[in-house]
Write a protein that binds this DNA or RNA. Sequence first.
DNA 1: GCCAACGTTGGC
DNA 2: GCCAACGTTGGC
Length: 136
Amino acid sequence: MAQYWLMKSEPDEYGWDDLVAEKEGIWDGVKNAQASNNMKAMKKGDQIFFYHSRQGLEVVGIMEVSEEHSPDVTTDPDRWVVVKVKPVRKLDKAVPLKAMKQNPKLKDLAIIRQTRLSVAPLTAGEWEEILAMAGE
DNA sequence: GCCAACGTTGGC
DNA sequence: GCCAACGTTGGC
Protein backbone atom coordinates (compact mmCIF):
# COMPACT_ATOMS: atom_id res chain seq x y z
CA MET A 1 0.00 0.00 0.00
CA ALA A 2 1.16 3.47 -0.76
CA GLN A 3 2.53 5.53 2.07
CA TYR A 4 1.30 9.07 2.74
CA TRP A 5 3.43 12.20 3.12
CA LEU A 6 3.20 15.91 3.45
CA MET A 7 5.70 18.31 1.94
CA LYS A 8 6.01 22.03 2.53
CA SER A 9 7.11 24.74 0.22
CA GLU A 10 6.89 28.49 0.23
CA PRO A 11 4.67 29.45 -2.70
CA ASP A 12 7.00 32.38 -3.40
CA GLU A 13 9.77 29.88 -4.03
CA TYR A 14 7.90 26.95 -5.50
CA GLY A 15 4.14 26.68 -5.25
CA TRP A 16 1.46 24.31 -6.45
CA ASP A 17 0.99 26.28 -9.66
CA ASP A 18 4.70 25.95 -10.45
CA LEU A 19 4.47 22.18 -10.09
CA VAL A 20 1.39 22.01 -12.32
CA ALA A 21 3.10 24.18 -14.93
CA GLU A 22 6.15 21.90 -14.93
CA LYS A 23 4.07 18.69 -14.90
CA GLU A 24 6.87 17.03 -12.94
CA GLY A 25 8.94 18.69 -10.25
CA ILE A 26 12.23 17.90 -8.57
CA TRP A 27 11.97 18.34 -4.82
CA ASP A 28 15.45 19.64 -4.05
CA GLY A 29 17.25 21.75 -1.49
CA VAL A 30 16.04 19.82 1.55
CA LYS A 31 18.86 20.13 4.07
CA ASN A 32 17.49 18.39 7.10
CA ALA A 33 18.38 14.91 8.25
CA GLN A 34 14.87 13.88 9.25
CA ALA A 35 13.29 15.25 6.09
CA SER A 36 15.98 13.64 4.00
CA ASN A 37 15.41 10.26 5.64
CA ASN A 38 11.72 10.57 4.91
CA MET A 39 12.47 11.27 1.28
CA LYS A 40 14.69 8.20 1.11
CA ALA A 41 11.78 6.13 2.37
CA MET A 42 9.46 7.31 -0.39
CA LYS A 43 8.34 4.83 -3.01
CA LYS A 44 7.08 5.51 -6.46
CA GLY A 45 3.33 6.12 -6.34
CA ASP A 46 3.28 7.32 -2.71
CA GLN A 47 0.75 10.11 -2.20
CA ILE A 48 1.87 13.52 -0.94
CA PHE A 49 -0.01 16.57 0.28
CA PHE A 50 1.44 19.85 -0.98
CA TYR A 51 1.41 22.43 1.79
CA HIS A 52 2.08 26.14 1.33
CA SER A 53 4.17 27.53 4.17
CA ARG A 54 4.76 31.16 5.15
CA GLN A 55 2.18 32.39 2.66
CA GLY A 56 -1.10 30.56 2.44
CA LEU A 57 -0.54 28.14 5.32
CA GLU A 58 -2.76 25.51 3.79
CA VAL A 59 -2.75 22.15 2.06
CA VAL A 60 -3.53 22.91 -1.56
CA GLY A 61 -3.16 19.72 -3.55
CA ILE A 62 -2.10 16.13 -3.93
CA MET A 63 0.97 14.92 -5.75
CA GLU A 64 2.69 11.59 -6.02
CA VAL A 65 6.23 10.28 -6.13
CA SER A 66 7.17 9.81 -9.78
CA GLU A 67 10.80 8.93 -9.18
CA GLU A 68 12.48 7.73 -6.01
CA HIS A 69 15.38 9.50 -4.37
CA SER A 70 18.67 10.42 -6.02
CA PRO A 71 21.57 12.63 -4.87
CA ASP A 72 20.82 16.34 -4.59
CA VAL A 73 23.39 18.06 -6.79
CA THR A 74 22.01 21.48 -5.81
CA THR A 75 23.28 20.98 -2.26
CA ASP A 76 25.64 18.26 -1.05
CA PRO A 77 25.07 15.11 -3.13
CA ASP A 78 26.87 12.93 -0.58
CA ARG A 79 24.46 13.98 2.07
CA TRP A 80 21.11 15.05 0.70
CA VAL A 81 18.63 13.66 -1.79
CA VAL A 82 15.89 14.78 -4.13
CA VAL A 83 12.72 13.03 -5.24
CA LYS A 84 10.65 13.69 -8.31
CA VAL A 85 6.97 14.40 -7.93
CA LYS A 86 4.06 15.04 -10.21
CA PRO A 87 0.75 16.73 -9.46
CA VAL A 88 -2.28 14.49 -9.07
CA ARG A 89 -5.00 17.04 -8.46
CA LYS A 90 -5.84 20.18 -6.61
CA LEU A 91 -8.07 19.84 -3.55
CA ASP A 92 -11.66 21.04 -3.91
CA LYS A 93 -10.89 23.48 -1.17
CA ALA A 94 -7.58 24.09 0.51
CA VAL A 95 -7.27 22.97 4.13
CA PRO A 96 -5.78 25.72 6.31
CA LEU A 97 -3.37 25.02 9.14
CA LYS A 98 -5.76 26.77 11.51
CA ALA A 99 -8.50 24.22 10.80
CA MET A 100 -6.08 21.31 11.15
CA LYS A 101 -4.95 22.62 14.53
CA GLN A 102 -8.54 22.72 15.70
CA ASN A 103 -9.19 19.14 14.67
CA PRO A 104 -8.45 16.78 17.59
CA LYS A 105 -7.85 13.90 15.17
CA LEU A 106 -4.90 15.80 13.73
CA LYS A 107 -3.23 16.79 16.97
CA ASP A 108 -0.30 14.46 16.31
CA LEU A 109 0.31 15.82 12.84
CA ALA A 110 4.01 16.34 12.30
CA ILE A 111 3.65 19.90 11.01
CA ILE A 112 1.78 20.85 14.17
CA ARG A 113 4.12 19.09 16.57
CA GLN A 114 7.30 20.01 14.78
CA THR A 115 6.64 22.97 12.55
CA ARG A 116 10.06 23.11 10.98
CA LEU A 117 10.02 19.62 9.53
CA SER A 118 9.41 20.09 5.81
CA VAL A 119 8.87 16.47 4.79
CA ALA A 120 6.75 14.36 7.11
CA PRO A 121 4.89 11.06 7.05
CA LEU A 122 1.13 10.92 7.57
CA THR A 123 -0.99 8.03 8.77
CA ALA A 124 -3.82 6.79 6.56
CA GLY A 125 -6.23 8.16 9.16
CA GLU A 126 -4.71 11.63 9.01
CA TRP A 127 -4.74 11.52 5.21
CA GLU A 128 -8.44 10.64 5.18
CA GLU A 129 -9.24 13.30 7.73
CA ILE A 130 -7.57 16.06 5.74
CA LEU A 131 -9.34 14.89 2.58
CA ALA A 132 -12.62 15.02 4.47
CA MET A 133 -11.82 18.58 5.56
CA ALA A 134 -11.27 19.48 1.94
CA GLY A 135 -14.84 18.40 1.33
CA GLU A 136 -13.91 15.16 -0.40
C1' DG B 1 9.27 41.86 10.55
C1' DC B 2 9.74 39.34 14.74
C1' DC B 3 10.87 35.61 17.42
C1' DA B 4 10.63 30.69 19.01
C1' DA B 5 12.18 26.19 17.86
C1' DC B 6 15.55 23.45 16.39
C1' DG B 7 19.66 21.82 13.79
C1' DT B 8 24.48 22.62 12.98
C1' DT B 9 28.98 24.35 13.87
C1' DG B 10 33.16 25.15 16.19
C1' DG B 11 36.02 26.23 20.32
C1' DC B 12 37.48 24.16 24.22
C1' DG C 1 32.43 15.00 23.42
C1' DC C 2 30.11 19.03 25.39
C1' DC C 3 27.70 23.12 24.84
C1' DA C 4 27.31 28.01 23.51
C1' DA C 5 26.75 30.62 19.41
C1' DC C 6 24.86 30.97 15.17
C1' DG C 7 21.77 30.19 11.09
C1' DT C 8 17.42 28.78 9.15
C1' DT C 9 12.62 27.83 9.12
C1' DG C 10 7.99 28.98 9.61
C1' DG C 11 3.95 30.66 12.40
C1' DC C 12 2.30 34.80 14.01
